[in-house]
Lab assay of single mutants.
Amino acid sequence: DVEEQIRRLEEVLKKNQPVTWNGTTYTDPNEIKKVIEELRK
């Protein structure tokens, strides 16, 4: 469920934690926001 994935990513973003997505770890909040934007398409 895309909405659920977006919610999880936004939670991690608020906590300033790194996100691992498709084998890539993102630590930059701007990169995480880009992943969220991609999911919304």
Rank of each mutant, 00 (worst) to 15 (best):
L13I: 13
E10Q: 09
K41A: 13
L39R: 01
K34P: 01
R8T: 11
E37S: 07
K14D: 11
D28W: 02
K14P: 02
P18D: 07
G23T: 01
L13C: 04
L9G: 01
D28M: 04
E4L: 10
T24S: 06
E38T: 12
K34Q: 10
D1I: 08
E10M: 14
D28K: 04
K33E: 08
T20R: 08
L13M: 11
R7E: 05
K41H: 10
W21L: 12
T20E: 15
Q17L: 15
I32V: 07
T25G: 02
E3G: 10
K34F: 07
K14N: 11
T27D: 06
R8W: 15
Q5P: 01
E3L: 14
E37K: 06
E4N: 09
P18V: 11
V19Y: 14
E31P: 01
V2N: 05
P29G: 05
K15F: 12
Y26P: 00
E10I: 11
E37R: 07
T27I: 05
W21E: 01
I36R: 01
T27L: 05
E4S: 10
E3S: 09
V19F: 14
V2Y: 10
E10V: 11
K33I: 12
E3N: 12
P18T: 12
K15I: 07
V12S: 15
D28Q: 06
L13S: 04
T25W: 09
P18C: 12
T27K: 05
L39T: 01
T24Y: 10
D28R: 03
E10D: 04
P18I: 11
Q5G: 04
K15D: 08
Q17I: 12
E4R: 08
Y26V: 03
K14E: 11
P29S: 06
T24N: 10
R8A: 14
E38P: 00
T25M: 08
I36T: 01
K14I: 11
L9S: 00
E31S: 06
G23V: 00
T27V: 07
E3Q: 13
V2S: 05
E38K: 08
R7N: 05
Q17F: 15
R7F: 06
K41T: 10
D28V: 03
E38Q: 12
Y26N: 00
E38C: 14
Q5K: 06
K34A: 13
T25H: 06
E3K: 09
K34D: 04
D1K: 10
T27G: 03
K41Y: 09
Q17C: 11
L39A: 02
N22W: 11
R8F: 15
L9P: 00
E4W: 12
K15Q: 13
V19P: 03
R8I: 15
I32N: 00
V35K: 03
T25A: 04
P18H: 08
R40P: 01
Q5E: 09
Y26A: 00
I32W: 03
R40K: 09
T25R: 04
N22T: 02
Q17D: 07
I6P: 00
I32P: 00
V35D: 01
K15T: 14
E11N: 07
E10F: 11
Q17M: 15
R8E: 12
D28I: 03
E3A: 13
N22Q: 11
V35E: 02
K15N: 14
I6T: 02
V35Y: 04
E38Y: 14
K14F: 13
K33H: 09
L9A: 01
L39V: 03
T24I: 15
L13A: 07
I6S: 02
K14T: 12
T24W: 06
T25F: 12
I32Y: 02
T24K: 10
R40S: 04
R7T: 06
V35T: 03
K15M: 14
P29V: 08
V12G: 15
T27F: 09
E38W: 15
D1H: 10
V19G: 04
T20H: 14
T20V: 15
Q5M: 15
N30S: 13
R7P: 01
N30Y: 13
V12E: 11
R8G: 06
E4F: 11
E38L: 14
D1Q: 08
I36D: 00
R7H: 07
E37N: 08
V12W: 12
R8M: 15
V19T: 05
N30E: 14
E4C: 13
N16E: 04
V19W: 15
